[in-house]
Simulated assay, not measured.
Amino acid sequence: MNQPNIQPKITPIYQTSVFKFEDLDAVQRYFDEPGSRYLYSRNGNPNSDELAEAVSHWEGGAGAVATGSGMAAIFAALLTYCQAGDHVLCAADIYGGSAALLNLELSRLGISVSYVPFEDLYDLAAYVRPTTKLLLCETMSNPLLRVVDLRAAAAECHRHGIKLVVDNTFATPVLTRPLALGADMVLHSVTKYLAGHSDVTAGAVVAGTAEDAARLRQIGTVFGLTLSPMESWLSVRGLKTLRLRVAAHSHNAQQIAEFLEVHPAVEAVYYPGLPTHPQHALAVVQGHGLFSGMMSIRLADDAAVVNRFMQRSQRFPFAPSLAGVDSSCSHPLYTSHRALTDAQRAELGITVGLVRLSVGIEPVEELLADLAQALD
């Protein structure tokens, strides 16, 4: 029977672990002509490649890999540049999982780390060693939403001959494209805004050069970091509404931040869209007028107060992740930054009263009403 000429508008899900070959000559062509066909889904799959290409296009990169999680993305990025005996600089304001990877696991591989306070990111002379390979930072820090001047950070890194690796999860390429500002590599927890619906666990790393992209692909294949076809397909579907969703997240978050800034139960609001934010002017330029849907607020340093807020809120359930279309709240001290030392948390101001809000795209009037009753 003749096969119909099928031309789907949407890429099908290639839910297969292995691909067939006609004979030995076909296998040889696979190795002689990279990219000519597929062999095994750990090495590459049409769905994971589609996602990698889409994220690379968003970020203006030379190539990318899709990984099984955001943590796998961080791991792949670091191993692209580092080996045993090397030294890594990391912004002190960083996701707790990144710190745990550096402190607990990469140290066992002989890669050491030093943490750089936010105010020193543009003057690294006191921190750089002969073995330093890179600086890892976030466009907007987790959880205090400090905004890094990526152009200045890149210039300082390159002055010392080291690479700049940027976690762009909070900002997304809708707001900021770090490679265009001088970064060497950018990564995402695709789980968050890129996929956007809290139903995927995935990551992506984008390289600024073809050489780094090839090294990324090698690491992804050898370490088995490749994302599954189904998760890749869902992530690509989410990416198609990224621009619309980020605009809606930002619109809602701006109104909520302004409301919370004057609420008597809230001691502080950390949101770059507020004129009172220390890096507001930078955020306006670097974020093209949008400020993401992420913010943190400081309530009284009393677990009972925080518990009452979480128990009363109906639209911001306590869920230790972020950036879905549905709003949620999280608690850095108890969840995302639990792996930090007491001294690190104290230095950053991560106390029991700090609550992180992930503002969704629901009608903002409903979110404001819920926060008002939860805080009263």
Rank of each mutant, 00 (worst) to 15 (best):
V285G: 11
T226F: 08
E258Q: 00
V285Y: 13
A304N: 08
P272S: 04
H277V: 02
A281I: 05
A319K: 14
L290C: 06
L322N: 05
V305R: 12
L234F: 10
Q314G: 15
V306E: 05
R237Q: 15
A300Y: 06
H277N: 08
H263T: 14
L244I: 10
D302L: 04
A281D: 11
V285D: 15
L282K: 12
F309C: 01
S250R: 05
L234Y: 12
F309L: 00
L290A: 11
H249D: 07
L244M: 05
S321G: 02
M230Y: 04
S292T: 08
S292A: 11
F309S: 01
H288M: 10
E231H: 11
G273I: 04
M310D: 01
M294W: 08
F291Y: 05
Y271A: 04
A304G: 03
E258V: 00
F318Y: 15
W233Y: 15
V262D: 03
T276E: 09
V269W: 02
P229W: 07
M294L: 12
E261G: 00
Q254G: 09
M294C: 08
L242R: 12
G287Y: 13
I297Y: 12
S250W: 04
I256N: 02
G289R: 01
V236H: 07
A257Y: 07
R315I: 06
F259K: 09
H249M: 12
S250G: 02
P278G: 11
L299K: 06
A268S: 15
Q254P: 02
A253D: 05
E231W: 05
V306W: 06
H263I: 11
R243M: 13
V284F: 00
L322S: 06
S228C: 02
M295L: 14
S228F: 01
H263V: 14
L282M: 11
H251T: 07
A268P: 07
G293I: 13
L234M: 14
T226R: 15
R308Y: 06
M230I: 08
L299A: 04
P317A: 08
G293S: 13
P278V: 08
G293Y: 10
E258N: 01
F316A: 10
S292I: 04
E258H: 01
M294Q: 08
T276I: 05
W233T: 12
S321D: 05
E231T: 07
S313F: 00
V269S: 00
